[in-house]
């Protein structure tokens, strides 16, 4: 359904420098640098997938989203989405997609949300019955009933984001692009947004591509991860594959009756220690978890014990490290 092949894109950026003398000099000559934002990006996404698109700031995530949503034309390469080339048949193509830019609003700032929805209905020429059905579904599942009459500028960030997502789904898009949908939201709002994304993906088969810095989003939502760094695609695969790649690590958290000395164990790193709790990290190919537990119960009176895998955050950091970005 989505197929990118060898996409390249570079920008010319004017260099700005500090200081009065430099500023005066820049009046006459200005230096430019070419920034390669995307380098030979290729991937395919099938219908119904939720793909997490991750990478450090400035890696090219937003640029890719812009290329895929028809805002930018790449220097070369092909991109076929739903049979369209986004930047060529813009008007016909964008009818099929919904886009949320987490840092910007698509709602009209000073009017009640419902008026913005009404205008979007006309922009997308949504038939009456479809509009009302969608509106009912969205207000119900995103709990918007109480806020649709409020002007956008009076909404909290979490409320606004829910409205943004609703706004981008009014016209039944087949693909939903979410650029940092959870940025700046509190825990409850994040969970609500995630649940909703999951739900429309399941119930309506909407393909979702989301960029985020919050690895919990990825863990909760994405079946598949694309990682980009310095404009190059570095990883394409499932979260589980990534886990098994760095997966021989385990974290053991142990609670015990007061014990005033740290318990060192050979071949295991102690991440933190207190008189009541310690956290150890180990490589199970070197030291099996069982032997660690055995050693621990010899020394302290174990109250509770938890074995966990490496958090996604650290996996991603490992990946970044591996590619030196």
């Amino acid at each position: 359904m989505i197929a990118l092949q060898g996409i390249n894109k570079s920008f010319k950026v004017a260099r700005r420098t500090a200081g009065v003398r430099q500023a005066v000099k820049a009046l006459f000559a200005r230096e430019h640098t070419i920034v390669e934002a995307l380098h030979n990006i290729s991937f395919e996404i099938s219908p119904g997938e939720i793909v997490g698109y991750i990478g450090p700031n400035g890696a090219g995530k937003s640029t890719t989203i812009k290329v895929m949503s028809g805002i930018l034309v790449p220097d070369n390469g092909t991109c076929k989405i739903l049979g369209y080339t986004p930047w060529q048949d813009r008007a016909a193509y964008v009818r099929n997609i919904g886009v949320v830019f987490g840092q910007r609003t698509q709602l009209w700032w000073d009017v009640p949300v419902i008026d913005s929805f009404g205008l979007l209905r006309d922009i997308y020429k949504i038939p009456g019955d479809v509009y009302h059905a969608n509106l009912a579904m969205l207000t119900e599942s995103l709990a918007l009933t109480d806020i649709v009459q409020t002007p956008v500028r009076q909404l909290s960030l979490g409320q606004r984001m829910r409205c943004e997502i609703a706004a981008s789904l009014l016209h039944d898009p087949k693909i939903l692009f979410l650029d940092e949908p959870t940025i700046g939201l509190d825990a409850a709002s994040k969970i609500a947004v995630r649940q909703f994304i999951k739900r429309i993906n399941k119930e309506r088969g909407v393909t979702v591509i989301l960029t985020t810095h919050d690895m919990n989003d990825i863990e909760a939502l994405a079946d598949r991860i694309l990682m980009i760094g310095k404009g190059t695609l570095l990883y394409d695969g499932t979260l589980n594959d990534l886990r098994s790649r760095f997966g021989s690590k385990r974290i053991v958290t142990v609670d015990y009756r007061e014990h005033y000395e740290p318990v060192p164990i050979d071949g295991v790193t102690c991440l933190s220690w207190s008189p009541e709790r310690a956290v150890y990290s180990m490589d199970i190919e070197v030291t099996p978890v069982a032997s660690v537990i055995a050693r621990l119960s010899e020394q302290v009176e174990v109250v509770d014990l938890e074995v966990g895998t490496t958090p996604v955050e650290e996996l991603v950091l490992e990946l970044y490290k591996e590619h030196r970005i």
């Binding site: 812009k66 949503s69 028809g70 805002i71 813009r90 008007a91 016909a92 193509y93 964008v94 009818r95 997609i97 886009v99 830019f101 910007r104 698509q106 922009i123 997308y124 020429k125």
Partner: peptide, 18 residues
């Protein structure tokens, strides 16, 4: 400048009208 023009480009109407 604010980048809001992007928003207009992802809508299925002529840019002039928008």
């Amino acid at each position: 400048g604010s980048g809001d023009f992007d928003r207009l480009l992802v809508r299925p109407r002529s840019t002039i009208l928008q």
